[in-house]
Design a protein around this nucleic acid. Structure first.
Lengths: 132, 132
DNA sequence: AGTATATATCGGAAATTAGCGAAATATCAT
DNA sequence: ATGATATTTCGCTAATTTCCGATATATACT
């Protein structure tokens, strides 16, 4: 049970990154699939996928596959950890993350296929116009 | 009061580092000077100084100068932050950090000049022999 | 089978960070 | 002032991380 220093550092590094922190914060709303997150945050799907991989590696999120979609959610055991609980509490007060969450709610209100077919999956559509 | 995403990420990055996390953990015992930390952790004084600089930049620690010594301590306001509180709670259970703290208590029991004159201040004395 | 779509992985250039000895700075002691 | 000592900054290489388009893989639909 006793956690290693290295493990704790890896967990910290996993969340010390703007995109990964934004994704983590979104998942507090409940499970989301890659494309919902990509659409919400207006970033390439491959970047979201990489962010999720790191968060999974650190043990924060788990995946549930359903057909071609992969839904990610926070691991409840982690949610009980003092560190993550404190971090999310602090994150809840960050304006940018609040805006992300508001967008996510709007995105989640749509049917997934509708959302996902809109996602810029690599073509440099309008990344520049990514106003929050 | 509202914290920026970037600020939160910088705070996280500051502690996502083995040495910096060890130093932060030590400071929970109370204020310590650079050489006490260097002696406790058996690392070069310049590395400790850099670690402290980052922790200070992130707002976690403050300095109190007293003659040629600079005593560092945790900022009490930060200690109240949910994130740092959670992190320290988790850190308290990490064996390596527990050992560090035990060493720090022993080091602190000695007079500072005695401790500091022993510190390898750059000469590669016996860094290899750094058994915990 | 073939097409479409969702996600993951790869490649690789650019940026950032780590680590530590050497040198600089600051303060005390004589 | 000279020397000793505590701390910081500098220089610089190596290692790591970031980012995203391209490519690969997986599943669904027809």
């Amino acid at each position: 049970m006793a956690e290693e220093l290295r493990t704790l550092v890896e967990r910290l590094k996993a969340v010390s990154h703007p995109l990964r922190l934004r994704v983590l914060s979104l998942l507090e709303l409940g499970e989301l699939c890659n494309c919902q997150i990509a659409e919400t945050l207006q970033v390439p799907a491959s970047s979201v996928s990489e962010a999720l991989r790191e968060l999974r590696r650190a043990g924060f999120v788990a995946e549930r596959k359903d057909g071609r979609w992969v839904f990610m959610s926070l691991v409840s055991r982690e949610l009980a950890s003092p560190f993550l609980k404190g971090l999310l509490e602090e994150a809840a007060a960050v304006p940018e993350l609040q805006q992300d969450r508001a967008r996510a709610l709007a995105v989640r209100a749509l049917a997934i296929p509708v959302v996902c077919s809109k996602v810029q999956r690599d073509a440099p559509t309008e990344r520049e116009a990514a106003r929050v």
